[in-house]
Computed example of a mutant assay.
Amino acid sequence: MGTARFDVETDARLDVSDVTDRVADAVDDAAGTDADACTVFVRHTTAGVVCNENERRLLSDIEELLASAVPDEGWSHDELDGNADSHLRALLLGNSVTVPLADGELDLGTWQSLLLVECDGPRTRTVSVVTH
């Protein structure tokens, strides 16, 4: 079992970044070939991690879905810091995903990628990869 971390710079309030290659590198750094799985965890309450296809139009659709599903305004938490929508969008996504490993490599399907979904950017996000 091992842990590795990396940072991701996001560019917009809602932004989807493919982190698959960086996760694969982190798995190499953390585990070797003994681990059976890895958990990818974003250490923030206004970002999420998902497994889906990295296709330009779909990434745009993900951003649009989140924007339309959770309105920007009208939430109680906005009285504190104006980002309740970001917390609620991240809640829908989840902050981690677990991926099986085969011979020390990510065992993803043909069209699967690991995506960091920023909901309160632009920011620097820290992603942890734990092999187990």
Rank of each mutant, 00 (worst) to 15 (best):
M1E: 15
G2K: 08
A4D: 07
A4Q: 04
R5C: 13
R5E: 15
D7C: 15
D7F: 13
D7A: 15
V8G: 04
T10M: 06
A12Q: 06
L14Y: 03
D15P: 05
D15L: 02
V16T: 11
V16E: 00
S17W: 00
D18I: 06
T20Q: 06
D21P: 02
D21C: 02
D21R: 12
R22E: 15
R22V: 12
R22I: 11
R22C: 10
V23Y: 00
V23L: 08
A26R: 04
V27Y: 03
V27T: 05
V27H: 09
D28F: 07
A30R: 05
A30M: 05
G32K: 02
T33W: 01
A35W: 00
A35I: 13
D36H: 05
V40R: 02
V40P: 12
V42C: 01
V42K: 00
R43P: 10
H44T: 09
H44V: 06
H44Y: 01
G48N: 06
V50L: 06
N52T: 11
N52S: 14
E53R: 06
E53G: 08
E55M: 03
R56W: 12
R57F: 12
R57T: 15
L58S: 12
L58K: 09
L58H: 13
L58I: 14
L58W: 11
D61P: 06
I62H: 04
E63P: 03
L65G: 09
A67V: 08
A67Q: 08
S68H: 08
S68M: 08
A69L: 15
V70H: 03
V70T: 10
P71N: 05
D72P: 07
D72K: 06
E73D: 15
G74Y: 14
S76G: 14
H77V: 10
H77L: 09
D78G: 15
D78P: 15
L80G: 10
D81C: 01
G82S: 05
N83H: 07
A84R: 08
D85H: 10
S86I: 04
L88D: 06
L88R: 13
L88H: 06
R89G: 01
L91M: 13
L91P: 02
L91C: 13
L91V: 12
L92C: 05
L92T: 02
L92K: 00
L93T: 02
L93A: 04
G94H: 01
G94N: 02
G94Q: 01
N95L: 00
S96A: 12
V97I: 15
T98V: 13
T98F: 00
V99H: 08
V99K: 07
P100H: 04
L101I: 09
A102G: 11
A102C: 10
A102N: 09
D103H: 05
E105C: 03
E105T: 08
L108R: 11
G109N: 05
G109F: 13
G109D: 06
T110W: 05
T110R: 13
T110V: 14
S113V: 14
S113I: 12
L114T: 08
L114V: 09
L115V: 11
L115T: 08
L115M: 09
V117M: 03
V117D: 00
E118H: 00
E118F: 00
C119R: 00
G121Y: 02
G121E: 04
P122H: 04
R123E: 15
R123Q: 11
T124L: 07
T126L: 11
T126M: 12
V130E: 14
T131R: 04
H132C: 11
